[in-house]
């Protein structure tokens, strides 16, 4: 190749780089949609009617647990926090939240367990156990209809950035990043099912596929398995960082817990 040809070649290669589509971006505010909007009329109706919404059973269980004494302290949640309908209003909408003791964000399940172990002197509840899901659903239910409200400050920013980085990182044998589906192809269908925008407005939620209530972490682990990527254990910092990022990008959207999803 002559020097002139080589220069032309390089210039054209560089030009092509600039005309490549821009890197994946987040969903613009005006286009943000809850998974609810992608559902069939029947599934929406199931969510909307408390008597038909299976998640209500967990919420009711959670209400009973809230008032039940537990642990060596022989205290119930309600002994300190009173009526959850007042004290827990809008609380779940700002989780994951910074825990000064751990110096990192914790999700609501972790916050509940910290209270159980630290205050009630009771053993921690297992992730995805009926009781932990029930308490989490009951507390989160007190934010239903209220906007997600994650505030980021100097303490939480590094964790938000770690979560964002994970969202845009290709991983697994299928070599896909969350963003490639949920930002770039959210209006498409994967095997006939809407992909949606990954706004976690309704967790813990009742998933028809699960035939039960499950947490956002359960959903994230399912997605990672689908990518044939290494999963993380429940409560892993990497999962909580991702939860923080997902809740933050849904800021302002209304909470739906207990939501129903296909």
């Amino acid at each position: 190749m002559t020097a002139r040809a080589a220069r032309l070649f390089l210039a054209l290669s560089a030009a092509r780089l600039f005309v490549e589509p821009a890197a994946a971006g987040e969903v613009p505010l005006s286009e943000r949609r809850s998974g609810y909007e992608f559902m069939s009329r029947e599934t929406r109706a199931m969510q909307d009617d408390d008597t038909g919404n299976p998640g209500t059973l967990w919420v009711l269980d959670g209400e009973a647990l809230w008032k039940r004494k537990a642990g060596a302290s022989d205290r119930a949640c309600s002994d300190c926090h009173g009526d959850a309908r007042e004290s827990m209003k809008a609380v779940a909408a700002r989780y994951p939240a910074f825990d000064p003791a751990l110096r990192r964000p914790v999700n609501l399940e972790q916050r509940i367990n910290a209270c159980r172990v630290g205050r009630q002197k009771a053993p921690a509840l297992a992730y995805e156990s009926r009781d932990l899901l029930a308490l989490t659903a009951y507390v989160t239910r007190q934010s239903r209809g209220l906007p997600i409200n994650i505030t980021i400050d100097a303490r939480t920013r590094p964790f938000l950035e770690a979560g964002r980085e994970a969202f845009f990182r290709r991983q697994g044998q299928l070599n896909l990043a969350c963003a490639q589906c949920h930002d770039d192809h959210w209006s498409g269908k994967l095997a006939g099912s809407p992909i949606t925008q990954a706004h976690p407005t309704g967790y813990p939620l009742y998933r028809l596929e699960w035939q039960g209530l499950g947490s956002l972490e359960r959903r994230l682990r399912g997605c990672l398995t689908g990518l044939r990527a290494e999963s993380y254990p429940y409560g892993a910092p990497e999962l909580v960082d991702l939860e923080l990022y997902l809740m933050w990008r849904a800021n302002g959207m209304r909470m739906e817990t207990p939501a129903v999803r296909p």
Binding site: Q171, R228, E230, S231
Partner: peptide
């Protein structure tokens, strides 16, 4: 392709 991939599950 099996190289240059990140965080692949052990089975794969």
């Amino acid at each position: 392709r099996s190289e240059g991939l990140e965080r692949v599950a052990p089975a794969y």
